[in-house]
Design a protein around this nucleic acid. Structure first.
Lengths: 334, 334
DNA sequence: TTGTATGCGTTATCAT
DNA sequence: ATGATAACGCATACAA
């Protein structure tokens, strides 16, 4: 009772292995009647091709490696959803490599490791520019960056600068003192992305254009404790009415918590705009910038698939734009 | 400039491919001098065997699949560390499959998918009993459960019942009103583990033995917002001095936060015992139950490796015990 | 102890 | 359009 092979299918269908392989890979040159009999044989035996043998013989394993940081946030769950659905449609398998720390990154980069045996590579949210310039990344197979940008590779990324501009333009129209909370990016970390720098630059650009200035800015690391502490610091010193751009919903949520604990009226004393549109944002009435994460991920997958299908053109860049979602946390204002 | 193969190594070392294969697989019957020359050829060419070819030829790919829920928490990071270090020592590669939802589980269980092409399987924290009895899991390759238990398979798991007992026995000796906070387990979820039920049963057993009763119990889902809300509810109605068993450090941390916000003296008005010993627990003075997660994971890997090495004996169960770590959150008490 | 030949499951290149 | 058959990179049985 071994796993059925292409031989078994060929025998049952009464054809040669070549023909079976042809229907498996959609090599048009096969009569429709024989195709049907092969297909039914495949069904009968519950046959699935051995990816290892495929890789050896044809150079393809129909497997994609996805390298991403820890899957902590909703963001990565959505990212994976978009990626996996696209690859699944194309009948590609997916292996996920969570890069929890630098040593794991080094390990996976070891060019012999499993991740590099895949047909293609998806890298998420790394600041890979350095690694490219240092030529540390010798990828023999096609690759795509998602939620990240680097020269010379296909990229699908979010226009975080624009997101900052949108936040700035909207908040500039609100009355009150302006504040901002940013996420701290550790400089020595490979995992550092530039998204918050970009949001910040867009935000300041828009404010400058509107002739407004920020009263104070705060920085927090990306966890709830730090976020709460930043919220406390902000509200301790803030003048009201206060208008705050929290560059991540996590930060905005903590601000809402702390404000409620102090009995502030949200949307009035304090207006808060987040960034992410996390699932709970709607329930809490948080105005925020929604990111089309699934669409971005799907597009990234599509870019990679086109390379796997033989596309040889220059690197392509797909940019996605956040969308302003207004709820009660910024008040009833238009 | 193709990737070097076993042929290239053989040629450079001036031996046959069989010999190279033998040194690769530690088949003792090879003279030490030739072994050395082969080894140096391998180094010179930076050769690494192709796992797909190995799988085809010898039936082994030297790859382990790890199936786990989310990689969100500190617990799983530590688990992965223990697992990966053990497998790495044995020169096995690791592919991680985060099963974020049920559909992904179904997909990976598709018996043809990549996860099932590995030499061995590690499953973490699932309540797999059902799936085994329903015979939904047709695993042809060896497998081990970590942080979970089921009949008929090798398991390495934490004695959560004992942890509950230890918590109960310790807290029963404290003066004040007793409270507990549990983590909500969704019944229809495959991902539901039984750890909190077990902690609860141990806790109540110890309390009963000590002749004490719980004033009130609370339930929270496993996120910081819910935890904070549970803390609020608890402290709103609690009588002081209060003694609380928070069945996860996440819950305990939120309780500490809320208590501090209310100006309570921790360790006196309110005593808190957590469960997990997260990295921040020491800094915050949280008394808690430390789990030897890495050791458990390492042992799980060892069990699996022994199967891969040919062990055919009956299923083995390895149980690990939490350790009570007393800090300031439970006061100066002995 | 070591080299050679065969087979693993598949794709690709031939013929036909 | 389809059936043989040669690779692919490796492990292994067999021969030397």
């Amino acid at each position: 009772m071994h796993k059925p092979t292409i031989q078994d299918v060929a025998r049952l269908a009464g054809v040669g292995v070549g023909t079976v392989s042809r229907v498996l890979n959609n090599h048009a040159a096969v009569r429709d009647s024989t195709r049907q009999s092969v297909l039914s044989a495949i069904r009968d035996l519950d046959y699935t091709p051995n990816p290892h043998a495929r890789r050896i013989a044809g150079g393809k394993s129909y497997t994609i490696s996805i390298l991403l940081p820890v899957v902590t946030t909703e963001f990565y769950v959505r990212l994976l959803d978009g990626l996996e659905s696209a690859f699944q449609e194309a009948r590609y398998d997916v292996a996920i490599f969570p890069l929890l720390d630098r040593s794991r990154l080094e390990r996976y980069l070891g060019s012999h490791t499993l991740a590099y045996q895949a047909d293609g590579l998806v890298m998420a949210t790394y600041n890979l520019t350095q690694m490219f310039t240092e030529n540390r990344l010798r990828h023999q197979q096609p690759m795509v960056l998602v939620d990240a940008y680097a020269e010379g590779v296909d990229c699908a990324h979010m226009n975080n600068h624009l997101g900052g501009v949108m936040a700035g333009e909207f908040l500039a129209r609100q009355e009150g003192h302006l504040y901002a909370v940013w996420v701290e990016t550790e400089l020595d970390q490979i995992f550092t992305s530039r998204v918050f720098e970009e949001r910040s630059s867009g935000f300041h650009q828009a404010l400058k254009a509107a002739g407004r200035t920020v009263s104070a800015e705060y920085v927090s690391s990306f966890d709830l404790h730090a976020a709460r502490s930043a919220a406390t610091r902000l509200l301790d010193c803030a003048q009201f009415p206060a208008v705050v751009f929290a560059s991540a919903d996590l930060l905005a949520g903590a601000l809402l918590d702390e404000a409620q604990a102090r009995g502030l009226t949200i949307g009035q004393d304090l207006k808060v705009l987040g960034f992410d549109d996390q699932p709970w944002a709607q329930a809490r009435g948080l105005s925020t910038l929604h990111q089309p994460v699934e669409a971005m991920a799907y597009e990234a997958a599509t870019l990679l698939l086109s390379r796997l299908a033989g596309y040889r053109g220059p690197p392509r860049v797909r940019t996605f734009e956040p969308r302003l979602v207004l709820r009660s946390s910024t008040g009833p204002g238009s």
